[in-house]
Simulated scan of single mutants.
Amino acid sequence: MAPTGIVLLDTYLPTSDEIAAILPELIGDMFEPPDGIAHLEQLRLTAMGRYFRMFGDWNPNPVSAPKLFVRPGDPLREHHREVAWRAGWPLPHHSADVGGNHFTMMSEGAATTAEAISRWIDALRH
């Protein structure tokens, strides 16, 4: 059975220029997290390492299911606004911009993120 839709949450392709621009601070934040960001523990470190091994040279293939690409409106750091920091998706998709940054869109901003996804799902049903 094919999926009815696919939701991508601020998904960076590992070889993208955008992830290269923010990765050093992203990793630094895991070891010395600012307020609102979970401290790096063994499980998160293992998951991140596995993600980069699995998707290090992967490029997405087209799929027939509609896609929603959800991304935050704020960078991790204010100075990131000076570089291309926002994740993008190379294949056709719908977009939803939500509040917060890569981390807070799924914590403090989870309700807004869920609303954006719910609206998209409702539109698929009609």
Rank of each mutant, 00 (worst) to 15 (best):
88 G>M: 01
72 P>N: 09
52 F>S: 02
55 F>G: 02
73 G>E: 04
88 G>V: 03
98 V>Y: 06
98 V>F: 11
36 G>D: 12
10 D>P: 07
111 A>M: 14
72 P>F: 05
9 L>H: 04
55 F>D: 00
119 R>H: 14
67 K>G: 03
51 Y>H: 05
23 L>G: 10
54 M>T: 15
66 P>M: 00
8 L>K: 04
39 H>Y: 13
50 R>T: 14
44 R>T: 15
52 F>M: 09
27 I>V: 13
107 S>M: 11
17 D>I: 11
92 P>V: 06
85 W>C: 02
94 H>T: 02
45 L>H: 12
1 M>A: 15
35 D>G: 01
34 P>R: 10
93 H>C: 07
77 R>W: 02
76 L>N: 06
123 A>D: 11
116 A>L: 07
126 H>T: 12
77 R>L: 13
115 E>T: 00
77 R>M: 04
108 E>K: 05
49 G>E: 09
69 F>W: 03
106 M>A: 11
20 A>D: 08
94 H>V: 04
17 D>V: 01
120 W>I: 08
116 A>Y: 05
21 A>K: 03
15 T>S: 12
116 A>S: 14
89 W>C: 03
57 D>T: 12
29 D>F: 09
122 D>R: 15
109 G>P: 04
65 A>Q: 07
110 A>L: 06
20 A>Q: 10
1 M>K: 12
39 H>D: 11
8 L>D: 07
33 P>T: 06
14 P>F: 06
121 I>F: 14
105 M>L: 14
92 P>I: 01
101 N>M: 06
46 T>Y: 10
89 W>G: 02
126 H>K: 14
17 D>F: 05
47 A>C: 15
42 Q>F: 15
66 P>I: 03
